[in-house]
Simulated scan of single mutants.
Amino acid sequence: MSKTKILLAEDDYDFGSILKQYLEIHNYEVTWAKDGKEALDYFESNTTMEHCAFDICVFDVMMPHMDGFTLAEKVVHKYPEVPFVFLTAKKMKEDKIKGLKLGADDYIVKPFEADILVLRLQNILKRAQKNVSKQISTTNQSIGAYTLDTVNYQLIIGDTVQRITEKEAQLIQFFYKNKNKLIKREDLLTEIWGSDDFFSGRSMDVFISRIRKYFKQDTSISIESTRGIGLTFKIGV
């Protein structure tokens, strides 16, 4: 059985060394970068659109050359589905909100027990594994002026081809299957994310924002939010 691969970005040498050793004791394979730029180099050299070499990323927020938030933005742009966790010594509410808006699966304030990190990583990976089992139709679907290609993971309109992730395809299909109906947030989270906790909710918000942009060329399609209840994928009404 292959080990779970972690990309760790931590500039504190002593803390990073201890954390790497502790994670390896728990059977993780750890690639440790000493700053944000080095971490991005590791990520980009080992990741394609079809395959991410890392199962989860752990990023310190305050690092030289590139901070954790900037690093996460670049990682999410290239591979939106990889789960990631922020480590930080800062307790500012604004920083936590910024991290969650980027789609972070967790935000851990230093100092913390290494056991806590391991348990949180296990929970995140367990949720991610459940999502892998979600099946989507392999038949192309017409959605307004668009075609959803679920074999090649593309959303096509005219000559424009938008590459999408598997989770985005799952979300679009679920929306279309329930078009023009109010879908409760918890139902959407349970179906696609496998959990309706706070961090899954923040991740979903990021995905929905992205999907709204994908469909902006067809004005007959919209995703409307009903505060405190859920969302409606409106089409042709």
Rank of each mutant, 00 (worst) to 15 (best):
M1N: 12
S2I: 09
K3T: 12
L7D: 02
L8E: 01
L8T: 02
L8S: 02
E10G: 03
E10K: 04
D11S: 07
D12Y: 02
G16V: 05
K20I: 03
Q21M: 14
Y22P: 00
L23C: 05
I25G: 00
H26R: 14
H26D: 14
H26E: 13
Y28W: 01
A33R: 02
A33T: 06
K34N: 08
G36T: 05
K37I: 00
K37T: 06
K37E: 12
E38G: 00
E38F: 00
L40M: 06
D41C: 03
F43N: 06
E44L: 14
E44S: 13
S45I: 02
M49E: 13
M49F: 13
H51R: 14
F54H: 07
D55N: 15
C57M: 04
D60T: 08
V61L: 12
P64R: 02
M66N: 04
D67P: 00
F69T: 05
A72I: 03
K74H: 08
K74P: 01
V75I: 13
K78H: 06
K78S: 01
Y79C: 08
E81F: 00
F84I: 00
F86W: 03
L87F: 09
L87C: 01
T88Q: 01
K90M: 10
K93S: 10
K93T: 05
E94A: 09
E94H: 03
D95K: 02
K96P: 00
K98N: 10
L102A: 04
L102F: 05
L102R: 04
D105T: 00
D105P: 00
I108M: 07
P111E: 02
F112V: 00
D115I: 04
I116D: 13
I116Y: 14
L117M: 01
L119Q: 09
Q122K: 11
Q122G: 03
N123H: 06
L125Q: 06
L125N: 00
R127F: 01
R127H: 09
A128L: 03
N131L: 11
Q135V: 15
T138Q: 13
N140R: 05
S142N: 13
Y146W: 07
T150Y: 09
N152G: 06
Y153P: 06
G158Q: 09
D159T: 11
D159A: 11
T160P: 02
V161M: 11
R163P: 15
I164T: 08
K167W: 01
E168M: 07
A169S: 14
A169H: 08
A169R: 07
L171A: 05
L171C: 09
I172D: 04
I172H: 01
K179Y: 05
K179H: 10
K179Q: 13
N180I: 11
N180G: 07
K181S: 14
L182M: 09
I183C: 08
R185C: 09
R185M: 12
D187E: 14
L189S: 09
T190K: 15
I192S: 08
W193P: 00
W193L: 15
S200A: 15
R202P: 01
S203Q: 15
M204C: 14
F207Q: 15
S209F: 07
R210C: 07
R210M: 10
I211E: 04
I211L: 10
R212A: 03
Y214L: 12
Y214V: 04
D218P: 03
I223L: 10
I223D: 09
S225L: 11
G228F: 00
L231T: 04
L231H: 10
F233K: 05
F233C: 07
G236M: 10
V237F: 10
V237H: 11
V237L: 12
